[in-house]
Design a protein around this nucleic acid. Structure first.
Lengths: 156, 156
DNA sequence: ATTGCTGCAAAACGTTTGCACCTAT
DNA sequence: ATAGGTGCAAACGTTTTGCAGCAAT
């Protein structure tokens, strides 16, 4: 009998799947575990490679399918940093935040700012739209070069 | 002797090219004209198709290359709306604005909000980064269905 | 004359799809 | 039993690249 690594997240996901008449499959929970294990932001294919390397038996189709489900039930957040690649990060028990991406080294810094959600709500109200989400990313260059290694390999 | 349709933009682009030791080629100004003619947001391939249809002789390589240059010299703005496709829009003599994308029909609404740039500056300063740009997009669903045709073909 | 740019086609990249088999319900 | 999920490979849409010929400098 194996120990479940993320019992709360499993429970949340199980409830979501049941509620939507999705099937409870071991593969989906494998993907959930691997996603929560991943530190930082990752693309679907990054996760695929990592799982295959770890000898987990999964297909890309299942990864893409499952990540979509995990984002739908708010266990993961879907991110876009302007390079035409979808990234995910855990959003389970994390508070909302936005990102500053260093255009030298690609490092992603997270920050919280209360004013943003207010602007989102105001603008949407004004234009007659119901908010479904927003994306806010700052692109910058670090002033202090010691903090930022230009030659550092970009996180793909 | 042909009339130049966008003399100010041509002049700006020519100066930028000269300054960066890029060559002044007729193809680049063809792309510039077609881009400025395009109403709304377009992808590189959209522009390619449009130019080919209009019997302009261009290659994809030139389009991609030139759009990059036009974005670098601020004649165009590069946009990302979360569907892994790079879009452009004219930013020549236009004031800065952000976007709300309707998740029903894909319509893109532009809005201006002064508070956003202030937040961008504050956050960057606080984190020790020099701002290079930002991306802010709200995703929403229109409250009044008359404004928003769910069946409307998405702008690709 | 030199070197960068163009056009073309092929390749790369992330993502989606079709399908036969499998498995949770 | 059956509908939905899985794995695999092929297809897809967008973007990038290699290369031979061309044209701006």
């Amino acid at each position: 009998m194996e120990k479940v690594k993320y019992p709360k997240a499993h429970e949340h996901f199980r409830a979501y799947l049941k509620n939507g008449s999705h099937r409870i499959t071991p593969e989906r929970f494998d993907v959930l575990d691997a996603a929560l294990d991943y530190k930082g932001h990752f693309g679907a294919d990054d996760l695929y490679v990592k799982m295959i390397s770890a000898k987990r038996n999964v297909s890309r189709a299942t990864i893409y399918n499952t990540l979509e489900l995990l984002a739908d039930c708010d266990l993961l957040a879907k991110r876009h940093f302007g390079d035409n690649k979808t990234r995910y990060e855990s959003s389970f028990n994390r508070k909302n935040h936005d990102h500053l991406v260093c255009i030298n080294c690609g490092e992603i810094i997270e920050f919280g700012n209360d004013k943003i959600q207010k602007i989102v709500d105001e603008v949407s109200e004004e234009l007659g739209y119901e908010v479904e989400g927003y994306s806010f990313t700052i692109f910058g260059r670090c002033k202090d070069a010691d903090n930022c290694d230009i030659l550092k390999e970009k996180e793909n």
